[in-house]
Nucleic acid binder design. Structure first.
Lengths: 214, 214
DNA sequence: TACCTATGTCAACAATCGTTTACTTGCCGG
DNA sequence: CCGGCAAGTAAACGATTGTTGACATAGGTA
């Protein structure tokens, strides 16, 4: 069942299994980032201990400092990996606003991968480190601009500037939603099905982003 | 300018000044709760140290344990005080949905008191303690029901149940908004004026809560 | 004035956490 | 087969943090 060490350097499979059969630095690094991201996203930076992360990943604590320099280095790696995974989705040409909305909902609420919503939650967590926080802010602003652009926003067009704010409100809604569902686990949101959520959310997002929907 | 020790037990003034002139346990307690709530809300529970809180309040660290038993006791006191301040606002009879929306916006975005948005932010912060977290969840659910009730929800009416979810989405939006504005300080939300925000927000909240607005 | 209690201060303790250092183990090329 | 190096481990250190107990002081009261 193991023996999944890929001979090609690329991570060909969708995502590594938790197995960590042999000694492989890359596999270990990825396991650490994945475990860390889950902890950071759900419990916050300060509440997460490196020993917990290491235990989740099934490796020794010292490897965090070996591979990432420090806890903050690991946090930055998590952030960068989230950026890398989020960016292709936002860069993918979107024909219409509806398509962007559908993609957002798929990522947040109909999560095929349980880690998808956690990626967004990570963007709300601060380590206190200025570097990581700058990445965080920049990512959120970049994400805002991508969403606004899909809605017709242009940096040159002064008349379209309100769309930037509206796009960020849409992001705020999604972030608050994931927060309440995943971290706070408040009812009835936490146990609501995707089918129950998509309807109202689609409606609200369209009001925010689609100028025709006004 | 001082001499503000109130002889009646009630806190008659809007909120105590930071002066703390003489030796007054009540004044000290309130100063601690206010300083703590600001720190907890903006930086999170774990990132906040009792020494910082005490320094902000201008008192000795040991008084936290004397008056609240522990750091978590102080956190619970902050949570309870937020509940007490939030509850009268939600219980106040609301004639229409528009009125409730206006009150929400006044609290979140046109904050006359700078601490008002922080009260909400506190509801997103977890101490890890089960007691405090239970209060937190219960408050959010209570707040959800109040908002939903104003929109026409009733626990007995099965047809109105979707309104509960929609009300919680509205809360998620507000919480995400305050988070991005206050804690993350992401642009352009952080520096947006109340006038820029009220328009879109009013529109979105009406879509979520007002059945006529559909 | 002289207590006496509530209020506030100070210093130290124990636990936790991030980090480092020295050591061990597995793997690959000669 | 074996030496060398990367990967992984174990234990300890220093700093921070929440907490505590002994001590100081103000202010009302007898």
């Amino acid at each position: 069942m193991q023996e999944s060490k890929n001979l090609d350097g690329a991570a060909s499979v969708a995502d590594d299994e938790l197995v960590r059969s042999g000694r492989d630095a890359d596999v270990t690094r990825r396991a650490l980032v994945r475990a860390a991201r889950r902890r950071f996203a759900t419990e916050g930076y300060r509440a997460t201990t490196v020993r917990h992360i290491a235990a989740d990943a099934g490796v020794n604590v010292a490897l965090i400092n070996r591979y990432f320099g420090s806890k903050e280095g690991l946090f930055e790696a998590c952030m960068n990996r989230t950026v890398d995974e989020l960016d292709p989705q936002t860069r993918a040409r979107a024909a219409s606003v509806d398509e962007v909305i559908a993609r957002l909902l798929a990522h947040v609420v109909e999560a095929p991968n349980a880690d998808d919503p956690l990626q967004l939650l990570l963007l709300l967590r601060s380590s206190g480190d200025e570097n990581a926080d700058a990445i965080r802010r920049k990512t959120l602003e970049h994400f805002t601009e991508q969403l606004a652009a899909a809605a017709g926003w242009s940096a040159d067009d002064p008349a379209s500037q309100p769309l930037l704010l509206r796009a960020q409100m849409a992001i705020a809604l999604m972030l608050g939603l994931v927060m309440l569902r995943t971290a706070t686990e408040v009812q009835p949101l936490a146990s609501a099905s995707a089918a129950q959520l998509t309807g109202p959310l689609e409606q609200v997002l369209r009001v925010l982003l689609d100028s025709r929907g006004m």
